[in-house]
Every structure is written in structure tokens, then in C-alpha cells.
């Protein structure tokens, strides 16, 4: 079972397919769950405290906006932890955790920098593309050791 970073990190489709074919998806929910379930200082809604943007300095310099660094504190560790990644490139309508274009650019870049299996594709726009989309993901996940 491989840890697969999903992009968009909030994707229902990717989260489902990675699990369906025997791997563990790494996405926003995992990082948020970790914060929501850790005692500390109260910082609703996401339990991201002002300390998190400081942790984000590991991936983005101090002149980078706090929101980017705060988001990077969610994604940075998972980018480091993952064994593979699936990226949907035209995810223009993923909000919230994926709401900042600058963070998204940086996350994608870091994923591409890492030497690991990576699949990049687009959301399907019709049935034929849907079949190709599913087949490509299934094939990718099988090749990295998932179930058939």
C-alpha cells in the first residue's frame, strides 16, 4: 500500500479511487483531522493556530503571505511523506484548503520535484474521457502495487 498525494487535495474522486484500488490517499482531510484531534490552543475553525504559518516557513519564505505558509504547513509534510502523486491539472474550482492559487502552484511544483511515480491528467468532460481517466488512474495505482 502506497501513500498517494492527491491533487486537488480535497478531491472526492481521487480520494475514492486511491482507496478503492488499495492505497492511502494523502489529502487535506488527513492534515485537518490531525489538527482537529490534537489538544492545544483553541483556534477555530480549522485548529490552525498562528504558529502554523511559522511552520510553513520550511517551504515558503517569510515574504510569502501567511495564508500560503499556513496551507503549506498542511501540505508540506504530506508532500514529503508521499510515495506517489496524482495531479488533476484543471482543478480550478476546488475551494478552501485548495483556495489559494499560489499555494497550489507551489504544491504541484514540489510534487514534480520529487522523484516518485506521478500521474497528471485533467477532469473528464465526457463519457469517453471518463473511461480514459479511470483507466489511467487504475493502471497507475496498479503499477505502484495496488490491488487489481
Amino acid at each position: 500500500m502506497a501513500k498517494v498525494f492527491i491533487y486537488p487535495a480535497t478531491s472526492l474522486i481521487l480520494s475514492d479511487m486511491v482507496t478503492r484500488f488499495g492505497h492511502k490517499p494523502l489529502g487535506s482531510a488527513i492534515a485537518i483531522r490531525e489538527r482537529v484531534q490534537t489538544p492545544g490552543l483553541e483556534s477555530p475553525p480549522l485548529q490552525i493556530t498562528p504558529e502554523e504559518p511559522k511552520k510553513g516557513l520550511a517551504w515558503a519564505a517569510v515574504e510569502v503571505p501567511a495564508g500560503v505558509r499556513g496551507r503549506m504547513s498542511l501540505y508540506g509534510p504530506m508532500v514529503e511523506e508521499c510515495d506517489a502523486a496524482i495531479i488533476i491539472n484543471n482543478a480550478d474550482l476546488a475551494f478552501g484548503c485548495m483556495g489559494c492559487a499560489r499555494t497550489n502552484e507551489l504544491v504541484k511544483f514540489l510534487l514534480r520535484q520529487k522523484e516518485m511515480p506521478r500521474l497528471e491528467l485533467e477532469y473528464p468532460k465526457n463519457e469517453a474521457e471518463g473511461v480514459q481517466f479511470v483507466a489511467a488512474i487504475k493502471k497507475f495505482l496498479t503499477e505502484i502495487g495496488g490491488k487489481k
Binding site: 483553541e42 483556534s43 490552525i48 498562528p50 502554523e52 501567511a66 499556513g70 483556495g99
Partner: peptide
Amino acid sequence: CGADYSGVQEEIN
């Protein structure tokens, strides 16, 4: 944009 992720949403509230 970014208030939750900067840890300042509760300050705003």
C-alpha cells in the same frame, strides 16, 4: 481568502 489558514479567523470573530 486565507484567514483560516493564517490562524486569524478567531481573532476576526
